[in-house]
């Protein structure tokens, strides 16, 4: 994790900031004063349970009896003899790779559409945000079946063209894609954040570009995209972490089974099954820490790469 340190330090222009710090903020006092609430929360509320789960990952803990220390057993089992672990990995990576880019592109495209002068803009924004309000509601299970089951809306529409579609949501070849669609459908949060980012781009830059006769495409690639990179970076990192940790969609739609045939077995859903379904909290904790490792590696690379493509207007 030391790599974040490098990135943050570099992007902060240490010389300048350091000077400010030394002259005006009297050392570290102000920094830690502002950091205090978070630090207290972190040390008092977050760190303890996290360390406890790290310890539990080296134990056999069935929730109902005291944990028994078993060393690396859980990790060894994961690496050697757990077919379901491999299945969950595959499903999760596929979900991350498919859902994140589509969701971000969709969110960006609509944020841009909504950033321009169309009548009824607040109305459309609200309408497009509505699905995201549903979140992880239990109602989604039924709604998604209405769309993607054998006799759902999609097949009714295909039927008009004489196509007899499968039961998308319960066919292992397609079920994961219906969850990807769900994720893309709930694109509201990144859209709002993109919108905020777009609004921060000074209009005079576009006016100047228009004066120079630059095409729309050129303006997009030369002005919009570069200035939006901090927000794109944020959305990318957050959405990817969220996708790795995705739980609720499959928990609700597959009723916690991850089926059919493990085709929607998200990593965290598997972890949940192990913890609360089969009383193996020790193993579940080990699974969780392996996920942390995977996400941390991904995040580190993202922050390293950020140096080359994220432009902070500092």
């Amino acid at each position: 994790m030391a790599t974040y340190a490098a990135e943050v330090a570099v992007s902060k222009r240490p010389a300048k900031a350091g000077r400010i710090g030394r002259f005006f903020f009297a050392g570290n006092g102000a920094g830690y004063m502002f950091l205090a609430p978070w630090l207290i929360g972190f040390l008092g509320l977050t760190l303890g349970p996290a360390l406890a789960s790290l310890y539990l990952s080296f134990t056999d803990y069935d929730l109902l009896q005291a944990p028994k220390f078993v060393g690396m057993d859980n990790y060894v089992r994961m690496a050697t003899g757990d077919a379901k672990f491999a299945a969950a990995m595959k499903v999760t990576f596929l979900y991350v790779i498919l859902s994140v880019p589509f969701k971000l592109m969709f969110a960006l495209a609509l944020a841009m559409a909504f950033n321009r002068g169309i009548k009824g803009l607040p109305f459309y924004r609200a309408v497009f945000y509505l699905p995201s309000l549903l979140g992880g509601s239990v109602a989604i299970a039924v709604l998604w079946r209405q769309l993607f089951a054998a006799d759902g809306l999609i097949n009714s529409i295909l039927g008009v063209f004489g196509i007899d579609g499968p039961s998308w949501i319960s066919n292992p070849n397609y079920s994961l894609y219906t969850l990807v669609v769900l994720s893309v459908w709930q694109f509201g949060s990144p859209m709002i954040i993109f919108l905020a980012g777009l609004r921060q781009i000074p209009q005079d830059m576009y006016e100047a570009a228009n004066m120079d006769g630059a095409s729309k495409a050129r303006q997009f690639f030369r002005i919009t995209l570069p200035l939006l990179t901090p927000v794109i970076f944020f959305n990318f990192v957050i959405q990817t972490i969220d996708a790795f940790k995705a739980f609720t969609p499959s928990f609700i739609i597959s009723a916690g089974t991850g089926g059919p045939i493990n085709s929607t077995l998200f990593y965290t859903l598997y972890l949940y099954q192990e913890a609360f379904g089969f009383f193996r909290m020790g193993y579940a904790s080990a699974l969780a820490w392996v996920l942390v490792l995977i996400i941390a590696v991904f995040t580190t690379f993202s922050f390293l790469s950020a140096r080359y493509w994220v432009h902070y207007d500092e």
Binding site: V142, R145, P166, N171
Partner: peptide
């Protein structure tokens, strides 16, 4: 068929 049966989550509504 199998894909229809897979809609059944052992609950009454499914």
């Amino acid at each position: 068929p199998a894909d229809v049966q897979a809609l059944d989550k052992s609950t009454l509504d499914t």
